[in-house]
Each structure stands twice: as structure tokens, then as C-alpha cells.
Nucleic acid binder design. Structure first.
Ligand code: MN
Ligand code: MN
Ligand code: ZN
Ligand code: ZN
Lengths: 155, 155
DNA sequence: CGGTATAAAAATAATCATTCCCAACATCTT
DNA sequence: AAGATGTTGGGAATGATTATTTTTATACCG
């Protein structure tokens, strides 16, 4: 069973070239990558997702995971989080929301403070950029890392 | 001439072990890396900085640049920006401020909207993390990339 | 349906940023 | 001055990501 979904045209789009036929095919691999990503709230990295997906598709390649995460992010199906740390992370929740990253272990969680959409307008007013979006990243110490380091005082 | 500067104790600090003698030595290399970084507002990457520094210190190694940028960031002398894109960027301005990254060329500029310090309190209230800080990153298209792509419509 | 064109996957190689390692050199301590 | 300690340069190693090539799956058309 193959489903097509229309592209959620994000970033730059040349109006003259917008073909009506650029749809993404939902292959087994894409389906399962998406399902596994949607299952968790942990914002996994590509290789974490690879491990999750391999339990259901043992023969999938890491390159396939990378390629499709990239593709799905371009199509607005998922979010590619370019947060601190060495690896990119992915998020099946595409509504704008903010994140916090643990400075101890790198774990990333959602922060449920209200989104400030008018920040973009403010930024646009104060710069010569064409402002497209924004995101807020908090840093802190996750509960588990606090527990591990009771002797350490954070300031 | 060697100058010592005291460490701007940032992140985790064990009060019991805070030695009074952990100072960073300002070697020629460190001095020049810092000077070159302070000269620009472009938030250069390590290798861009390497190229700048090499004009004054032709024999310096790329590893030295990485090592010292890391060290100076740990000591709060500079900022290590973990923004989107493939490379880390550095900033001699250590006061909290926000940035915008061009989705076309990766360039990073300052955004001069007021810093919202109370965001950290809000985040702390709504999560079990010990919240330490925050930063806001806007994305957009820089003037030069707008010029280059007049035919493209951004939305 | 069968045959061909096209898209995607798997396997593997290549690239890029960053870190690690170590021998040589510099600075500090006494 | 001599030993201890810190720093550098150069190069190798690592880790994440991307590119390339071959194979497999799906679509398209008669
Ligand atoms: Mn999220
Ligand atoms: Mn800045
Ligand atoms: Zn943690
Ligand atoms: Zn640009």
C-alpha cells in the first residue's frame, strides 16, 4: 500500500517552478521511520532512530534513515532540530514549540511555555534579514543528571 | 608578557573543590585568537578563525585554534554558538543576545531585540529541569542572499 | 498481465568537522 | 640550573553525515 502526501512547501519556493507533481511516496521504510519517531518524545538522533527501526526492518541501511529523515524534514512532515551537541535530532511534532537540552547528557525535552510568534515581527523590524522563523533553546540539567551529581552545585 | 585572567566559573562547579589557582594563561596564540575574534562581528567558525590567525601566526595549528576556543568558551571569555549548520561558531561578545542565521549561506548575525531573562523562570516553572540559560535563534534570508535570488519567493 | 522506465534502497566509499595523541618546546617552581 | 608542568604543532583517529554505485521495488503503458 503506497500513499502519496502533498509537500508542505516550506522554505524557498520558486513560484514559476512549483510543479504540481512533486509528491513523496510513503514506502515501507518511510512509514516505519515515521511511526517509530512518532512513538517517542525523546527527539532521537538519526542513529538512535536507526536502532529503533532496525528492530522492525533489520535490513534497513543507516543511509536510508538519514536520507528519509532529511526528505521528510524538507517536506514538513517532521522537524529537524539543529540544537547544540554533535548530532542533529528529530521530532514528529511539527507545531512550533521550544526545547531544553541537558548540559550533562545531551537529552532534549519539550518546554511547554507559550510560543511567541510576534518575536519574528520584532526581529524583522530590527534587522535587514527577511525573517522566516525562530526557535528557543533552553539549557539545563535534567532530573536524572541532577540525581547523578548531588555533590555538584550548579549556578 | 603573560597575563592571567580568573575563570568566569560558568556551568557545574563543585564548591568543595573550587581551587583558587585555576587560571588560564594568555599565551601568544590565545591572545591573537582572541584579538582576531574580537575584530569581527561575523561569528566565525574555527577554521575561518584559523585562516585569520594564520596571517599573524603562520605556524599555528588548527588543533590549537580548536583547543583554545574550547578552553576560552569554558572560561566564559568567549561564546561558543551551537547554532544550526554543520560548524560551531564563536563570538567575542559574551553578553546574552540573540542571533539570526541565513538559510541560504549560513551566515550568522546579531539580532538586537531585548533579551527576555524571565523566560528562564517560566521554563523552570514548567519543567523538571534545573534551567540554566536560553538562547533564541532566528532563521531568515540575509540581504546578500535576497539579492542573489530575486526570482525566488520566500514564504 | 509483461516490459520498460523511474524511484528508492542497500552497501559502501568519501567527506567534513572535530578530537585525540605525542614528541618538542615554553614557562614555572624551587 | 633542573625538574615539573603546561602548551604547541603536526598528524592520526573518530564520528557524523553525505555521496556514489549497484540492486531492488514500484509505477507506467500498452
Ligand atoms: Mn519537541
Ligand atoms: Mn553575537
Ligand atoms: Zn541529563
Ligand atoms: Zn545569506
Amino acid at each position: 500500500m503506497i500513499i502519496f502526501i502533498p509537500p508542505a512547501t516550506s522554505t524557498p519556493v520558486n513560484i514559476m517552478e512549483t510543479k504540481p507533481d512533486n509528491m513523496i511516496r510513503i514506502t515501507t521504510q518511510r512509514q516505519i521511520i515515521l511511526e517509530e519517531l512518532a512513538k517517542v518524545k525523546t527527539h532521537p538522533t538519526a542513529s538512535e532512530l536507526y536502532d529503533m527501526v532496525r528492530k522492525r526492518l533489520p535490513r534497513i541501511g543507516l543511509g536510508t534513515v538519514y536520507r528519509n529523515l532529511e526528505l521528510m524534514a524538507e517536506n514538513g512532515m517532521i522537524l529537524k532540530l539543529e540544537v547544540g551537541g554533535t548530532q542533529k535530532r528529530f521530532d514528529a511534532t511539527t507545531d512550533t514549540h521550544y526545547h531544553i537540552r541537558c548540559s550533562g547528557c545531551g537529552r532534549v525535552d519539550d518546554i511547554d511555555t507559550p510560543v511567541m510568534d510576534d518575536l519574528v515581527k520584532e526581529a524583522a523590524a530590527s534587522s535587514s534579514y527577511l525573517v522566516q522563523g525562530h526557535h528557543v533553546e533552553f539549557t539545563g540539567v535534567c532530573p536524572s543528571c541532577q540525581e547523578k551529581n548531588k555533590d555538584v552545585t550548579y549556578q
